[in-house]
Simulated assay, not measured.
Amino acid sequence: MCIGIPGKVVALEASQPQHAWVDVCGVQREVNIALVCQEGEPPEALIGRWVLVHVGFAMSRLDEHEAQETLSVLQAMGEVEPDVALFMAGEGRDGLR
């Protein structure tokens, strides 16, 4: 299954300038933010912003309302789709985070 999930940027990764830490359902993950950085805007401006994360990349920005609605839909899907439930729990198929 290929889906993106909303996450909130909580910190920048000091060792890699185009990476940040994003909170996804209570689990912090390092993601590449190059696609959502805007020209002339410092990366620090992303802290506190919501982004759609897919395979380690922030693909687009979301407002908080849209992020919360998407999370609600994904949580509802998790009740019937085992893959989505694992994804929402921050686990892979093997149960590892």
Score class of each variant (00 low, 15 high):
residue 2 C to H: 04
residue 2 C to Y: 05
residue 2 C to W: 04
residue 3 I to R: 10
residue 3 I to K: 07
residue 4 G to N: 01
residue 5 I to C: 11
residue 5 I to M: 13
residue 6 P to M: 09
residue 6 P to I: 06
residue 6 P to A: 12
residue 7 G to N: 09
residue 7 G to P: 09
residue 8 K to M: 13
residue 8 K to E: 15
residue 8 K to R: 15
residue 9 V to F: 08
residue 9 V to K: 10
residue 10 V to R: 15
residue 11 A to E: 14
residue 13 E to V: 14
residue 13 E to M: 08
residue 13 E to F: 08
residue 14 A to Y: 04
residue 14 A to S: 15
residue 14 A to C: 00
residue 15 S to G: 13
residue 17 P to A: 07
residue 18 Q to Y: 04
residue 20 A to D: 08
residue 22 V to Q: 11
residue 23 D to K: 08
residue 23 D to W: 04
residue 24 V to M: 12
residue 25 C to M: 11
residue 26 G to Y: 13
residue 26 G to Q: 11
residue 27 V to C: 08
residue 27 V to K: 13
residue 29 R to W: 12
residue 31 V to L: 11
residue 33 I to F: 05
residue 34 A to H: 13
residue 34 A to I: 09
residue 34 A to Y: 12
residue 35 L to P: 02
residue 36 V to Q: 06
residue 39 E to Y: 06
residue 40 G to R: 10
residue 40 G to T: 07
residue 41 E to F: 03
residue 41 E to W: 01
residue 43 P to D: 13
residue 44 E to F: 01
residue 44 E to Q: 15
residue 45 A to W: 00
residue 45 A to N: 06
residue 46 L to T: 06
residue 46 L to I: 09
residue 47 I to E: 03
residue 47 I to K: 02
residue 47 I to Y: 02
residue 48 G to D: 07
residue 48 G to S: 04
residue 48 G to R: 07
residue 48 G to K: 06
residue 50 W to K: 03
residue 51 V to S: 06
residue 51 V to D: 05
residue 52 L to C: 12
residue 53 V to H: 04
residue 53 V to Q: 02
residue 54 H to Y: 01
residue 55 V to R: 07
residue 55 V to C: 07
residue 55 V to G: 01
residue 56 G to I: 01
residue 56 G to R: 02
residue 57 F to L: 06
residue 58 A to W: 04
residue 58 A to V: 02
residue 59 M to E: 09
residue 59 M to H: 03
residue 59 M to V: 12
residue 60 S to A: 14
residue 60 S to F: 00
residue 61 R to P: 02
residue 62 L to E: 04
residue 64 E to S: 09
residue 64 E to D: 08
residue 65 H to F: 08
residue 65 H to V: 08
residue 66 E to Y: 01
residue 67 A to D: 07
residue 67 A to G: 10
residue 68 Q to K: 13
residue 69 E to H: 14
residue 69 E to C: 15
residue 69 E to P: 02
residue 69 E to A: 14
residue 70 T to H: 12
residue 70 T to W: 13
residue 70 T to D: 10
residue 70 T to L: 15
residue 72 S to Y: 03
residue 72 S to C: 04
residue 73 V to P: 01
residue 74 L to E: 05
residue 76 A to F: 03
residue 76 A to Y: 01
residue 78 G to K: 05
residue 79 E to R: 11
residue 79 E to G: 08
residue 81 E to C: 10
residue 81 E to M: 14
residue 82 P to L: 09
residue 82 P to A: 12
residue 83 D to I: 00
residue 83 D to L: 08
residue 85 A to K: 15
residue 85 A to N: 12
residue 85 A to T: 03
residue 85 A to L: 15
residue 86 L to R: 15
residue 88 M to V: 11
residue 88 M to F: 10
residue 92 G to W: 05
residue 92 G to V: 00
residue 92 G to P: 00
residue 93 R to N: 04
residue 94 D to A: 10
residue 94 D to Y: 03
residue 96 L to Q: 12
residue 97 R to V: 07
residue 97 R to D: 06
